[in-house]
């Protein structure tokens, strides 16, 4: 299988590659239009700030390419948010693949939402073998509200989208590459889609 991790200098690219390596899978890092287009599956990591990540994508013309992809695609953390329409972070227009907003946590709780929290209402083959209320690792200050595309949710304190699916685009707000054995299982499930 030809697995490509989108490398746009804005992400936790190395950690995702290592997590796949632990599963015995070699992934190619690339920001090349043709390489990504030809891949069997694409993983789109991300940490950092939305507007600078979008600038990196635009600089590589990937803002045009990613919405046209038809193979199974997995956005992680900021990589999930970038798939949406618009983010309150830096008032940024995103890739616009999934018609959802990205909002800042407005809560008395600590922000960033940092640490291990539970996955609930799991409803996707992505969560095959994962039990309800399994813990996953999060670190983020912005979130995607619940929607018809939500395939898992987490509460902080209100429920938000822990994961999304829209056509071939899967996405997780948590970090499967840092979420212990459960996270590895979720990556494995994506590879099996």
């Amino acid at each position: 299988m030809d697995l490509v991790i989108v490398d746009y200098k804005a992400g936790n690219v190395q950690s995702v590659q290592f997590a796949l390596e632990r599963l015995g899978v070699q992934a190619t890092l690339s920001c090349d239009f043709e390489t990504i287009k030809a891949a069997d599956k694409v993983i789109f990591p991300g940490v950092g700030e939305a507007s600078s990540a979008m600038a990196q994508l635009r600089a590589r013309n990937l803002d045009k390419l990613l919405p046209t992809l038809e193979q199974p695609f997995f956005g992680v953390c900021l990589g999930m948010q970038l798939l949406c329409e618009h983010s309150e972070e830096g008032d940024t227009d995103l890739l616009g693949i999934i018609p959802l907003p990205v909002k800042r946590f407005e809560t008395d709780l600590k922000v960033p939402h940092m640490g291990w929290n539970q996955l609930e209402k799991l409803q996707s083959p992505l969560f095959e073998g994962i039990t309800e209320r399994e813990y996953a690792y999060y670190v983020h200050s912005y979130y995607v509200p619940l929607s018809e595309y939500t395939i898992a949710q987490t509460s902080y304190p209100e429920p938000f989208s822990a994961a999304l699916q829209y056509k071939n685009f899967y996405a997780a707000q948590f970090h499967p590459e840092k979420s212990g054995p459960a996270g590895s299982q979720i990556l494995k499930n994506f590879l099996a889609l």
Binding site: F18, A19, H175, E177, K178, P181, G183
Partner: peptide, 11 residues
């Protein structure tokens, strides 16, 4: 650090 990241699946 690289070696740790390669082998550890928590942050």
């Amino acid at each position: 650090v690289r070696d740790i990241a390669r082998h550890i699946d928590i942050p």
